[in-house]
Design a protein around this nucleic acid. Sequence first.
DNA 1: CGGTAAATGTGAGCGGTGCTCTCGCTTTAA
DNA 2: TTAAAGCGAGAGCACCGCTCACATTTACCG
Lengths: 232, 232
Amino acid sequence: MTQTPRERARLQTMSEIVSIGRKHLAVHGAAGLSLRAVARELGVVSSAVYRYVRNRDELLTLLLVDGYNALGDAVDNAVNQIPAGDFAAQFRALGGAVRAWAVAEPARYGLLFGSPVPGYEAPAEQTTVPGTRVITQLVRIIEEAHRAGKLRADEPLAVPGPGLATDFSAIRQELGLSVPDHVLARGVLVWTALFGAVNFEVFGQYGRETFSDPAALFELHLAALADLAGLI
Amino acid sequence: MTQTPRERARLQTMSEIVSIGRKHLAVHGAAGLSLRAVARELGVVSSAVYRYVRNRDELLTLLLVDGYNALGDAVDNAVNQIPAGDFAAQFRALGGAVRAWAVAEPARYGLLFGSPVPGYEAPAEQTTVPGTRVITQLVRIIEEAHRAGKLRADEPLAVPGPGLATDFSAIRQELGLSVPDHVLARGVLVWTALFGAVNFEVFGQYGRETFSDPAALFELHLAALADLAGLI
DNA sequence: CGGTAAATGTGAGCGGTGCTCTCGCTTTAA
DNA sequence: TTAAAGCGAGAGCACCGCTCACATTTACCG
């Protein structure tokens, strides 16, 4: 069961490739990620990296999983600092962690949540689990708040139609949830709104000098979103 | 003052280049946009396109402006169908138009609102005006609703700090607005949330089969966002 | 009207990319 | 010990952005 030297070297090289790729991604973006450049920095001829990575897309997949896990770790870590019963604070910690990671790693964030690379379909079996870590946490927060009676009992603003209700039922069953449809609907909106706010800041959609303190703006938005989710 | 044939030919060629670029963008995405391919389709040798376009980035800028204007036209057109006093319906029309355009033109939408191309800074003097057409409409809707007394008078959820208040004052002055800070803050959130919802659908951030009728989900979100903005 | 300057298209060429293939060498496993 | 598998090197293909020197066409002006 012990690793042969060759196996150890392979793992080492793989992680070096991902590490170099991560660096190049940060500097040149996903479009500028070049296997030849990675090979150069690895000190090896260009064709040699194909022993480790089938093609450029596969390196992108590795970096995608790498990024999802880095973000997931940051979020989990932030949420775990909050007392178990304070769900609104947990939500704010989650949102703050997403924003902080995105601001610190804009290129990686862009790879995860930006425009998809055309012709590249992320392989679900590798990306689904790490790619759903944030929404899993958010769902947990809302579900536990609901079970603990810590969710404001809003009157439903609008009733989802029958098609949507079917989808919501499927989601509820798959994730073992007890929250009603309108809470689920609000949760999805809060989810997308959270990433919408982060996108705008990280992708520079606000003007260059519109907001001098985007962190403060985001805090304001987080509070509004916690309220929208019904967290008290 | 009348155009020479050469001038007419140049304009014609320019618009052909943009048109071909638009098509290639839709098929191959921004990263796959190739001046050589455009030249081939134009029936001209590759170096000839450089007589019309300084480099690839400049073609991207043209397509950016082209996309902003297409989206702006779609939004203006949709909003103009709504009676002048029904601001909530105008907002829903705006949101629906954004989504419809984005779903129909995902690659162009991605160029406008996806991850920025690293090393490419859109020239503000060309992109600012078309790039702000949607937010200009949204601001107009909220401002006019406010002046017409058609905005719910919410208690402010959270008070923006002094830095943010300064930014809001500047925005208010520059755009000649009369809405108070907390309305402005909500407006920004609604703005980002709207595009967050569209991003999630167009960029495929929901799972592949999570929602069978994303349009219905979006309608639900639009209603919630209109309510969040205070539109009645 | 004729000449000059600008605009336009051509083709070669440079350095870069992803990716494939063949060839040797080394490590592993039977 | 030997056969198989893994690995790196290097050449090569087709593509890319972009530049340059050159011919041709068009526009304008004395």
